[in-house]
Design a binder for these strands. Structure first.
Lengths: 200, 200
DNA sequence: GTCTATATAAGGATAGAC
DNA sequence: GTCTATCCTTATATAGAC
């Protein structure tokens, strides 16, 4: 364990991330964040002025990863199916490390006071996938489908278990480790599914 | 339009459903519910005592549909793939009529004060699908896969666009009608996907 | 049953001492 | 920079008149 002492600002950001990600904006309390950070509530305002501003900082930091940047990956000269396989591995890996990310993001964009944050989402991903798909489709290497629908399916398949995690833990009487193992297994399963869907 | 006057209790429940579904428990205000119902805030407490009790009433009423009861459908003697097709049609239809349902349910089960509500979910669906799958698998009519993983994929594919609706509307510069058309189209696309996944 | 007025509590934000 | 104490707004809940 690294025992490097974090600055107060860093401690606050770390605590805010934990609380906001878990409880959402409306469900979070400044007092909870202060408690987790191990400091006083007044200091939160000293550093970040308001709950809104602190939330925005956390959102900005986390949001980049939700729609991962696949720039380099998608410009490689490899089959489309392989690109999707790489996406699945990378994205599921990210979700295993940030299990609250999907609910956090989807909650925020659906929040009546936070809908402006939609503009912050880096949504190049869908354009990259679509473009990459059409190149490959013209070569006849991939089945005909609607890439927009395909991306929604892909993301939905990856994300759903993390959104429904409390239900799944209850259903399977499982703990976090069992869940993670199920997700590791899921990576292979999803790769198989998309291969079946994409292969002509 | 039917002009039948609702009872006060019914008006409250209708308004509470609208507000809770849209804004979630933490994001909802009793005042908003009273305004939508067109009555006074004090009446909410007269009829339902507390915000918690009112929320529970709404949750109980809505929850049945999230994991639809497919009892009759799944006991029919038809191919497994056809059962899944019927599920997709029925579920997407339900979601088109209740676009907030997925976020509402997933938000609630992830809420730190509402996790007990998980017990209320009618989760027979997954058992029915798994059982139905194995019968068909033994006959060699369906590809080998993990039914639990398959159900998660199926639900994820159906639900995702409704969770991400504000993002999609922004991306495609679309309105509600366009979104609904995209979902109608999606029914066919998803039926195609599951056929490819399930057919040996 | 329905309303107005008010009590009570929670939570975000600030003042001021150190 | 960090704390304690306090302010002020918002929101749930209740009292009491009609």
């Amino acid at each position: 364990m690294t025992e490097i002492e974090l600055s107060t600002e860093e401690k606050i950001l770390k605590a805010a991330e934990e609380v906001f990600m878990r409880d959402g904006y409306d469900g979070s309390r400044m007092q909870d964040i202060a408690d987790v950070a191990g400091i006083n509530k007044a200091l939160l305002h000293y550093y970040f002025r308001s709950k809104d501003k602190l939330f925005e900082k956390v959102f900005d930091a986390k949001i980049q990863s939700f729609f991962p940047k696949m720039g380099e990956k998608f410009s490689q000269d490899i089959p489309f199916v392989d690109k999707i396989h790489i996406f699945i591995e990378g994205y599921m890996d990210l979700l295993l490390k940030n299990p609250y990310l999907p609910l956090f993001v989807l909650n925020t964009v659906n929040n009546k006071d936070k809908s402006a944050f939609i503009k912050k989402l880096p949504i190049e991903l869908s354009r990259q996938v679509a473009q990459s798909y059409y190149v490959e489709f013209k070569k006849g290497n991939v089945r005909e489908l609607n890439p927009a629908q395909f991306i929604m399916s892909l993301m939905g398949m990856c994300i759903f278990p993390f959104l429904a995690k409390p239900i799944l833990l209850d259903m399977f009487k499982a703990d976090n480790d069992t869940f993670d193992k199920l997700m590791e297994e899921r990576i292979q399963e999803l790769k198989h599914y998309v291969t079946l869907i994409l292969t002509p």
